[in-house]
Nucleic acid binder design. Structure first.
Lengths: 196, 196
DNA sequence: CACGATACGGAACGCAGTTCCGCTTTACAA
DNA sequence: TTGTAAAGCGGAACTGCGTTCCGTATCGTG
């Protein structure tokens, strides 16, 4: 039952050499395109950049969202793994929580349109939302519970709405210099502090 | 120079009777459609409901967003006008701020997909975003400044990011029973409190 | 080298918002 | 009442998106 890492069909090593080459080209092209045009870069553009037809994209990544996941998987994983590390390193669980949230926000804000894509509609980006959740929810829960156990924050907020709230606050943070998502997230976290 | 209320071209009383009738039918149909299918209801559906062609929509409302604005204008205005009233009535500016925010969040959460439409992409819903801003920003500024002047909250947060943050937190609040936008907004406001 | 499995390309589909233009309806003047 | 220009209308058509499909090309093996 433990089959983590097979979701997009992109990690099962295929037999044919050209297939693997195309898949890598696609990942590179997508990363490029996301960087310069945001996560909303049209599938056709990505295919063109990679020098393949659109059909090839869909053989490797069943859906646009799966391509996005594949591109950012490493960074999401890194963020997930940073949680326990911060908890072990930081002076207090609350400090670890704050640092981890910063990490997450930095990640979201840096990728143009990622936050928007991850929230909002469910038709096209459902898988993306799901992946983020299943990867980050356990970590976030752990941090939240540790900080609650140490009495630094209130204990009546689940990780899910907290994570979604952070994600939501990051929507549109790029492309608007007057909107500072980091600050608002900090305010939200400040609102969590126990007011004894 | 003071020509408020002409923006969508929907309030300039047209000469022809049928035109006015169609415009009203369109508004009713849109309100209906938004209620049952969310603000994302396709233009064609709305036109069909109203018994007109799509072209008719675009003569009355240059853009989908303008139709959305026209449908919700009254409620946005009501929200804007409630600001000063609450400020005058409430025991403290902070209480007024909290109540006003509640009002705004209720409004956003109630209309399926409105928050999502208002934030996020700018191509299609730019005018919507703009309208909300120009209507609510002054009110929000007033409330924030009053609460800051009374020493109840910190004074270093502009109304714009605050409003956007609230709007963002409401994204996807409908259609997800596990996500309580009201609570998160409350947390955000709590984070605003002065910590002397 | 031949052949079957595998992968590829890109035309085509469905569904958005929006535009365009030939036709209808209205309002007003004669 | 009726003629006529202006205003309004309907819906086919255009652009752009994600996705599907299928005839063709390529790969790896016997």
């Amino acid at each position: 039952m433990n089959d983590s890492g097979q979701s997009a069909g992109s990690s099962a090593r295929s037999k044919r050499k050209d297939a693997r080459r195309n898949q890598q080209a696609l990942l590179d092209a997508a990363a490029d395109a996301f960087l310069s045009s945001g996560v909303d870069a049209p599938v056709r553009d990505i295919a063109a950049r990679a020098g393949v037809g659109v059909g090839t994209i869909y053989r490797h990544f069943p859906t646009r969202a799966d391509l996005v996941i594949a591109v950012y998987r490493h960074q999401v994983d890194a963020c997930a793994e940073a949680g326990p590390a911060l908890l072990a390193a930081g002076p207090t669980p609350h400090a670890a929580l704050v640092r981890w949230v910063d990490l997450f926000v930095d990640f979201l804000v840096t990728k143009h349109g990622l936050a928007t894509a991850m929230q909002g509609d469910s038709t096209c980006f459902g898988p993306l939302h799901t992946y983020f959740l299943e990867r980050l929810l356990p970590v976030c829960t752990q941090l939240l519970e540790a900080a609650a156990a140490s009495g630094e924050i209130r204990s009546d907020l689940d990780a899910y709405p907290f994570l979604r709230g952070i994600g939501n606050l990051c929507v549109g943070a790029d492309s608007d210099p007057h909107y500072d998502a980091r600050r608002l997230v900090a305010l939200l976290v400040a609102g969590l502090r126990r007011s004894d």
